[in-house]
Each structure stands twice: as C-alpha cells, then as structure tokens.
C-alpha cells in the first residue's frame, strides 16, 4: 500500500508484478485472478488463443486498461491511477503495439526524440544523438528524416522499438508486435527483439510466434479464457504441456 516499498526493494523484487488482478468488460470476465511476476532480465512470453485476454493483460500493466481489483506493482511501487505519478511510471515501462502507432505527423527521428525531450527533459542535441544510435541499432538510421507512412511495416515497428528504448525503460511490453506485419517482415522485427533479449532487457511479450517463444523466452505463460492456465520453461511447455487446453492449443497451431 505504501511507497516506502522502495527501501525494502532488493534484487528479488520483480520489475513487474500482478497480484490477484481481475477485470470485466461488461458481463465478460476477461482477466480472472491473474498472478504474475517478471524478474529483471527475464523474457516472459504470453501465448494463447485469441480472446484469451493476453493483450488485455499486457495493456493493464501501464494502465491502458483499468483493472477492477487486485494490484499491479512496478519495482514494488503500486501503479498509480492518475496524474504525474502515473505518467512517471509509464515512462519507465516501454510499450510496442501491434499497429506500430508511430506519430503520423512527425519524422522518424522526431518520433524517437519526443519522449526524451518532453518527458525526460533532455536537450534536443542529446536526444538526437542518442536517437540516431538507437535507430542504427535497429537498422533504420537511413530513414531518419522520412515520415512513418514512407516506411514498410517492419521498419515502422523497429522505429517503435527504438522509440521505446529511448526512454531507458525498466521493461518493455510487446503487444503482438508482429501480428500486423507481412510474413517477410516478421523476421527483421523478431531479430531486433532477440538481440534486445540477449542484451538483458526485461521483456513481456504477447505473441503468436512459437519459434520466438521457444528460442528466446525464459518463461512461457499460457492463457485461456482469461486465466493463466500454465506457466513453465519453454522446453517443458512445448515438449510436455501439462494441461489439456495447452495441448489442444499447441496441436491446433501445429496443424497449420
């Protein structure tokens, strides 16, 4: 309940922690008693059939969706409900969306420096230098002065990742980052994400890319019908799924 949790924070305090989170959309119970924690440096991948509530779960963490009950903690601090406190905590958690959501009226570089300048109050020069480094890290530095509509979907999504990184976030949430991409562009985005994971970024990824989950995840969470059904290492989950629902799900995607 208190902000003094900071002082008791230690290495084992999760970056993201959800306790007994419940949420309804009208009569639909979309999140049922969700308990989940993500440790520093972990890559947690959430999979599950569509409508299972995985996207909603991801969006509750920076309060793009509200919750009905339960707690969401960022490094032990309870997620505030509004105001400057909420904005401050959001700035520490990056987010990458399915539909990229780059600012359509700004150039690529201006997309990346908006947060650092307006929120972190960095100078334009400093923000720009760092933004260029980030853009070259994700391989789109040559496009810096174009506007989003001139870029391919894969390039836009890599810019969105750079935009999130520019805030030096404690963790990044990926909400189905490759679902809106043409097949040939999925790889370039997953490569960037894999690189990030190897460098120790804390990540929570909602995805349908099973190969990515298998190779990169520290932990896989399987959701269905609004609850977490199974939670395991990728090897265990993909080779020996315990629940019937997870087995059905894995069979159904292998059928394709």
């Amino acid at each position: 309940m208190s902000d003094t949790m900071h002082e008791t924070m230690n290495d084992r305090t999760p970056v993201i922690e959800l306790k007994h989170v419940d949420k309804h959309f009208g009569s639909l119970h979309v999140l049922k008693d969700i308990n989940l924690s993500v440790q520093k440096g972990e890559v947690v991948v959430i999979i599950g059939p569509s409508g299972s509530g995985k996207s909603t779960l991801c969006r509750t963490i920076n309060r793009l969706e509200t919750i009905d009950s339960g707690e969401i903690l960022i490094e032990g601090t309870k997620m505030p409900q509004e105001g400057k406190e909420l904005a401050r905590l959001r700035a520490q958690i990056g987010m990458v969306f399915q539909s990229f959501n780059l600012f359509a009226h700004k150039t690529i570089i201006d997309n990346v420096i908006l947060g650092p300048m307006d929120v972190l109050k960095k100078s334009k020069k400093e923000a720009k230098e760092e933004a260029m480094q980030l853009l070259s890290r994700v391989g789109v530095d040559s496009q810096a002065n174009k506007v989003p509509a001139q870029l391919s979907g894969g390039q836009q999504q890599r810019v969105a990742i750079a935009r999130a990184l520019a805030m030096h976030p404690k963790a990044i949430l990926f909400d189905e980052p490759t679902s809106a991409l043409d097949p040939e562009m999925i790889g370039e985005v997953l490569d960037v994400m894999t690189k990030l994971a190897r460098e120790g970024m804390t990540m929570l990824v909602v995805t349908h890319e099973m190969n990515f989950a298998r190779r990169v995840a520290s932990r896989v969470i399987f959701m269905d019908g609004g609850s977490i059904v199974e939670e395991n290492t990728p090897e265990e989950f993909f080779n020996h799924p315990k629940s019937q629902r997870a087995q059905d799900f894995l069979n159904s995607i292998q059928a394709h």
Binding site: R90, A91, L114
Partner: peptide, 11 residues
C-alpha cells in the same frame, strides 16, 4: 493508437 502510444511514453 497514437494517443495510447503517447500515453505509454509518459506524456
């Protein structure tokens, strides 16, 4: 989407 993106940057 853009408004949510701006919000998630802490604006």
């Amino acid at each position: 989407g853009q408004i949510e993106a701006a919000r998630s940057l802490g604006l």
